[in-house]
Amino acid sequence: MCGTKPMIVGVSDGYGGNTWRKTGLAEVKDELSRCKNVTRVIYSNANGDPQKANSDINSMVAQGINVLILLPDFGAVQLPAMRAAMKAGVAVVPYSAQMTGTPGRDYVVNVVGDTQQIGVLWADWLGTTLKKGNVVFMGGSPGATTSQNFMDGLRGGLKKYPDLKLLNEQYIVTNWNPVDAQKATVGLIAQYPKIDAIVTDGGETALAAVKAFEQAHLPVPAIATIASDNQVNCHYMSAKQSGKPYPYYTLDGTTTYVRFAVRQGVAAYQGTVNKESPSILPFAYADSAKGLDPKCDPTAPPDADLTSALPPQKLKAVFER
C-alpha cells in the first residue's frame, strides 16, 4: 500500500491538545512508520478557530503535502480548503466527523464510524439486558449530524423491542460538555419519573449522567455509550467494587479510526489498492452483562483512551507529553 513515491503527510486538527487528539496523532505516526517513503509529517492545530483551520490546510498545501488527514471539526466551513487541496493533487481524507460534500471532488473518502449500526448495537444490548423500560438518548451540539444518525440507528434498532420506549423525540443537547450534560440529566430526572437507560454518544456525557443520578441519590440507570475514557471506566469499576454496580456497555477503539484514514489517503496518492470500508464499527470494550470489565489506569490522564492500537510504551509516551 505504501507505494514508491516519496510523500509528505499533513495532519490537521480543529481542536488539538487533549489526550484523545494526541493519541490520534501518535497513531498516525505509528501507522506511517511502515512506509519508508514518508519524508515528513506536518501537524497543525487550529485551537478552535475555523479560519485558522482553513489557513492551516492552505499552508500545508503550499509546503507540498501529498496526503492530508483531518478531523473536520467545523464541518462544511472546511470544504473550500479541502476542495482546493484536492485540486492541487493532495489526497484529502476527513475522518471521525460526517461531512457533506462530494467524494472525489472535496475529499477522497470520508472515514467514519457506522453511526446507524452503532445505534442498533446499543438497542440490541438494551433489548437483551434490560428487556423493558424507558430509554433516553443524549447527543452533542444542536444539529450535530453524528448525534442525529446515532439516534436514528437507536430508534430503528429499538423497533425489535416493543417493551423498550425511547422517551425523547429529539436528542438531548449536551454540547459534549460535562457541565451541560449534568444539567440536562437533572432536567430529565425532573421531567421523567422513571428512566431505565441512558444512551450517549460520548464517554464524558455518560459519566456526567451517572454523577447526576448519584448526586440525586437515585439508582444509576443502564448506561450505553461510545468513546469512553479512563475517567468513566474507573468510575464504573469503583462503583462495581463498592457494591453499587450499574449495567454498562461501551463501544471503543475510536482513536484507531485515523489509521483507516491514513491507509485510504496513502493508497489514493500512491495509486495502490486499499479495499477497506470507510465505514467502521467499534468494538465492545465493556459489557457488564457479559462480565467484560473496562481497564482503569489510575496513573493515566482522566481523558486517556486506553483502547488505542498503540504499543503500551508509545501510549505511555503520549500521556507523558
Results as ranks from 00 to 15, higher is better:
residue 1 M to W: 15
residue 3 G to W: 04
residue 5 K to S: 13
residue 6 P to S: 03
residue 9 V to A: 08
residue 14 G to C: 06
residue 16 G to Q: 11
residue 16 G to M: 13
residue 17 G to H: 12
residue 22 K to M: 15
residue 24 G to F: 08
residue 31 E to V: 08
residue 32 L to T: 06
residue 33 S to H: 05
residue 34 R to V: 09
residue 35 C to R: 03
residue 40 R to F: 01
residue 41 V to G: 00
residue 41 V to R: 08
residue 44 S to Q: 05
residue 45 N to G: 00
residue 46 A to W: 02
residue 46 A to T: 04
residue 47 N to T: 07
residue 47 N to I: 08
residue 56 D to Q: 01
residue 56 D to M: 00
residue 57 I to S: 03
residue 58 N to T: 03
residue 59 S to Y: 02
residue 60 M to E: 04
residue 61 V to H: 11
residue 62 A to K: 07
residue 63 Q to N: 11
residue 64 G to T: 01
residue 66 N to E: 08
residue 68 L to C: 03
residue 70 L to N: 14
residue 74 F to T: 11
residue 78 Q to V: 05
residue 80 P to C: 12
residue 88 A to F: 01
residue 89 G to Q: 08
residue 91 A to S: 03
residue 91 A to E: 00
residue 93 V to R: 00
residue 95 Y to A: 09
residue 100 T to Y: 10
residue 102 T to P: 15
residue 104 G to E: 11
residue 105 R to C: 12
residue 110 N to L: 06
residue 112 V to K: 14
residue 117 Q to W: 06
residue 119 G to N: 05
residue 120 V to R: 07
residue 123 A to Y: 12
residue 124 D to F: 02
residue 124 D to I: 03
residue 125 W to R: 15
residue 126 L to Y: 05
residue 127 G to L: 08
residue 130 L to R: 09
residue 130 L to P: 13
residue 133 G to D: 12
residue 134 N to G: 02
residue 136 V to I: 07
residue 137 F to C: 02
residue 138 M to C: 05
residue 140 G to Q: 06
residue 142 P to K: 07
residue 143 G to W: 09
residue 145 T to M: 13
residue 146 T to E: 12
residue 147 S to A: 15
residue 150 F to N: 13
residue 152 D to T: 12
residue 155 R to E: 14
residue 155 R to V: 12
residue 155 R to H: 14
residue 157 G to E: 02
residue 158 L to C: 12
residue 159 K to M: 13
residue 164 L to F: 11
residue 166 L to H: 03
residue 166 L to Q: 05
residue 167 L to I: 05
residue 168 N to K: 10
residue 169 E to P: 09
residue 170 Q to N: 07
residue 172 I to G: 05
residue 177 N to W: 04
residue 178 P to G: 05
residue 179 V to W: 02
residue 180 D to W: 00
residue 194 K to F: 07
residue 195 I to K: 00
residue 195 I to Q: 01
residue 198 I to Q: 00
residue 200 T to G: 10
residue 203 G to C: 01
residue 205 T to K: 03
residue 208 A to S: 08
residue 208 A to Q: 02
residue 212 A to R: 00
residue 214 E to D: 12
residue 215 Q to H: 04
residue 217 H to M: 01
residue 219 P to I: 06
residue 220 V to L: 00
residue 223 I to W: 06
residue 225 T to Q: 05
residue 234 C to M: 12
residue 237 M to T: 13
residue 238 S to L: 10
residue 239 A to C: 13
residue 242 S to C: 09
residue 244 K to N: 09
residue 247 P to A: 15
residue 247 P to D: 14
residue 248 Y to A: 12
residue 248 Y to Q: 14
residue 255 T to R: 04
residue 258 V to G: 03
residue 259 R to G: 01
residue 262 V to C: 01
residue 264 Q to R: 07
residue 265 G to A: 07
residue 267 A to R: 11
residue 274 N to Q: 14
residue 274 N to S: 11
residue 274 N to F: 15
residue 277 S to M: 10
residue 278 P to C: 12
residue 280 I to H: 09
residue 287 D to M: 04
residue 289 A to P: 05
residue 295 K to W: 08
residue 296 C to P: 09
residue 297 D to K: 13
residue 297 D to M: 10
residue 297 D to R: 11
residue 298 P to H: 15
residue 300 A to E: 09
residue 303 D to I: 04
residue 307 T to W: 09
residue 308 S to P: 01
residue 308 S to W: 07
residue 312 P to L: 10
residue 314 K to R: 15
residue 314 K to A: 15
residue 315 L to Y: 08
residue 316 K to T: 10
